[in-house]
Design a binder for these strands. Structure first.
Lengths: 212, 212
DNA sequence: TGGCCTATCGGGAAAGACCCTGATGGGACC
DNA sequence: GGTCCCATCAGGGTCTTTCCCGATAGGCCA
């Protein structure tokens, strides 16, 4: 039993009860809530250290709870608990301010451990989500076949990448062993196809899409 | 003792020996390396499941090791181990593909636990880094007082931002209500101070640092 | 075979970017 | 009151980028 105060938010009473049953041996559970508004009000009043919050709930979901509470109580730590492991949900919760994200299939002992780690300030993710989060952070989210990129020929994409890297036409020409004039042609085509008006905009366009 | 094979990379023999001493009870340590090239070659040959890698090393550092090995062995899991907890280092390692990042002040037992979690596919960060990583993921990277940025005057930084956004000198001039010549002067100063040679490199420099 | 796309080049011209020297006024610091 | 740094601007030169006008050669397809 530690003294890390815990608060539970889930719209399924049965699940709420299960979690409470499993964790009350190890943490003082200061309160529970089964809808968004109730959760926000109670958390603000009770000021628990860690909040276990469900992702999908009527009335806005966990994101609403997290972002609202953090505005007044930024020190509160949130651990998202969900049946879903979809990237969209994970991203949304992390952006809102969750310190971790585990799926409901987690073993009770692991959940207790996750709560402890979140209370310590650590970041906790289910194994299958960890890789995703890091990939997203590294900017290597799914290749996501860009329709705008697809309309460029392979050679044009190649030139685009080098231009985006900050190389001058002359350097691109040397690198690809072609003449400056050819580079000009490719760049012109790219600018026209992407409806941009200068290599500077092109560089920014590329960096926005992480094509570097 | 689990069967998770471990490989250690650190240029400090003493530290290497210490880690080896602490962890060899729990993991089969299949090899160690104290420089970048040796590390890459050995890891490719021995194919350990988890690699503990130092961030700062002569010959490129941990980033080089990680990105090289991942090209041929993408299933290898890397746990970065460093004396530094600076945001730049953490970002660089994560981008390179590290699955976790802990500081060398970590307790041996915690390190063993971190290795286990990385082997499980989990993400591991020292508590003080966890928050930073999540903040960065949420797109709210701290201003992170950059020493290179600091040597620029406020006006120069302002011009830098606009240039990095892909604006032409003329547009920058209009936006700041100054003459093109003044913009030229500022850009020249920035290029000189940052030791860059063209606005294209400057744009790339800025986008690398997310100064946009 | 003729049409279309791609990749490769060239001349020439206008605009933009870059570099150099030099100048002015306003603060800050000592 | 002199010395620095900062921000502002100018002239003039060189190189780069961008956009015209072309051209040739290869591949694919109906």
């Amino acid at each position: 039993m530690t003294d890390t105060t815990l608060f539970l938010v889930d719209d399924h009473e049965l699940f709420l009860s299960g979690v409470q049953n499993e964790l009350s041996q190890q943490y003082p559970i200061v309160g529970t809530a089964s809808d968004v508004d109730e959760a926000i009000a109670s958390i603000r009043q009770l000021e628990p250290e860690v909040v276990l919050v469900d992702v999908h709930m009527p009335g806005g979901g966990g994101v609403t709870v997290i972002s609202n509470v953090l505005q007044t109580h930024p020190e509160t730590r949130f651990l998202a608990l969900s049946v879903s492991d979809s990237p969209e949900d994970v991203i949304a919760m992390i952006r809102a301010g969750a310190r971790g994200y585990v799926t409901k299939s987690i073993a009770p002992a692991d959940l207790a451990d996750a709560v402890r780690r979140v209370a310590d300030g650590d970041a906790v993710f289910s194994p299958r989500l960890a890789g995703f989060v890091l990939d997203a952070f590294g900017g290597a989210i799914s290749p996501a076949a860009d329709p705008e990129l697809d309309q460029l020929t392979p050679r044009e994409q190649e030139v685009l990448r080098l231009i985006a890297r900050g190389l001058a036409y002359k350097q691109v020409a040397r690198k690809l062993s072609i003449s400056i004039k050819t580079v000009e042609t490719h760049v012109s085509s790219v600018l026209r196809k992407l409806q941009l008006s200068s290599r500077h905009e092109l560089a920014r366009w590329a960096s926005d899409r992480r094509i570097i």
